[in-house]
Computed example of a mutant assay.
Amino acid sequence: MAVFTSVSLDDLQEWIKQFPVGQVSAVRGISSGIENSNFFITTDSGEFVLTIFENLGFEQLPFYLKLMKHLASRGVLVPDPVSNQHGDLVTALHGKPAAIVSKLEGSSQMSPLPVHCAEVGAMLAKMHLAASDFSIRQKNLRAAEWRHATVPEVLPFLDADRQRLLKAEVHFQDALEASPLYRSLPNGPVHADLFRNNVMFDGERLTGFFDFYFAGCDTWIFDVAVTVNDWCIDLESGALDEARTLALLNAYHSVRPFTEPESLVWQAMLRAGALRFWLSRLYDFYMPREAEILTPHDPGHFERILRLRETGPVPPLPYFSA
């Protein structure tokens, strides 16, 4: 999260009246992340998160917000979007789409232990199952089409070795996605960005997932791979920590058993997850947008992870063989 569009207390005094939250008494920008403008707001009813969407349009946002409503109604721990007096979840603020959601308890666990990873794995499986009957289908906007549009933008900034790595991995993922094996993978709505800073804990108790604004329909195993590539690694090297990886995978498997096809693509999906974030960080690094508050991310982190996932050891995926 970041702040590209400034919002003052005066800006909110009239705008907030359309929501059943009372008057707003404080607003504070949130610095983490790089996509939207985010704020903590304090009202007569408590604390909420206000998001102004910088890239997503009014036509795309119902998927994300209604998905969160759907999950919350099924006991998945996610922020609950607040409707205005007309039942709208998205309204305009400073000419851009904006939404308010409830604020989760707790704080991010940035040094997770196996017990935290197990909590994440179990809730991720519960989320996938709960979302399987969600009626709106919207593709993952950071998948193949986005890759092919973004790679030419970043290639001129890379040396020959990194160009080769990027082109080869895109080719590998394209071939995989064209295969019958890939088409047999269980799929549905996914979070697609479940990093440590998008999950809240109170001690060892998971209190919620948030920031669903990269969500879309994709394979569930891709979502697991993205999550493992952040929660279960040594941050300095990018190497997988076996105890944390197995804790997350086994907890997920206990709720929604993995399939044999998923086990066959497991290492490839870890590569896909690394590629997705290496590419987006390359783009943000070389073509940054202006923001009042911005937390930059190092593209080299996911380049290291991608190289390791291509050749390094990967703990096996437990699976159910029919």
Results as ranks from 00 to 15, higher is better:
71 L>S: 03
76 V>D: 00
95 G>T: 06
80 D>S: 15
91 T>L: 04
100 I>Y: 12
92 A>V: 06
52 I>T: 01
102 S>L: 11
63 F>N: 01
50 L>S: 01
76 V>Y: 01
83 S>K: 10
76 V>A: 02
62 P>K: 10
60 Q>K: 13
81 P>H: 12
78 V>N: 09
67 L>I: 09
42 T>W: 11
99 A>N: 13
80 D>V: 15
84 N>E: 11
98 A>V: 09
42 T>D: 14
88 D>C: 09
84 N>V: 11
79 P>N: 10
87 G>T: 05
61 L>N: 12
63 F>C: 05
88 D>V: 01
99 A>Y: 04
34 I>P: 00
82 V>A: 07
98 A>N: 07
73 S>F: 09
51 T>F: 01
74 R>Q: 11
39 F>K: 00
54 E>R: 07
90 V>P: 01
85 Q>H: 08
51 T>A: 03
41 I>F: 01
91 T>H: 06
91 T>P: 02
86 H>Q: 14
94 H>R: 15
89 L>S: 15
38 N>E: 08
95 G>K: 12
99 A>Q: 03
39 F>D: 00
81 P>C: 13
95 G>L: 05
78 V>A: 12
64 Y>Q: 15
64 Y>V: 10
80 D>Y: 14
94 H>Y: 04
52 I>E: 01
80 D>F: 14
87 G>N: 05
43 T>Y: 06
75 G>P: 03
73 S>D: 15
91 T>I: 10
91 T>D: 09
102 S>Q: 13
53 F>L: 08
68 M>N: 11
99 A>E: 03
65 L>E: 06
55 N>H: 09
71 L>Q: 03
86 H>P: 00
57 G>W: 07
72 A>W: 10
83 S>G: 01
94 H>S: 14
40 F>L: 10
89 L>F: 15
37 S>Y: 01
41 I>G: 00
65 L>C: 07
83 S>T: 11
43 T>M: 03
91 T>S: 12
70 H>W: 12
46 G>I: 03
60 Q>D: 15
67 L>N: 07
64 Y>L: 14
59 E>G: 03
67 L>C: 05
65 L>V: 08
73 S>W: 10
63 F>S: 02
97 P>W: 04
86 H>C: 06
45 S>W: 03
84 N>I: 11
62 P>I: 05
94 H>M: 09
45 S>D: 13
52 I>L: 15
95 G>C: 10
93 L>G: 01
76 V>I: 14
50 L>G: 00
83 S>F: 12
52 I>R: 02
67 L>M: 10
35 E>A: 05
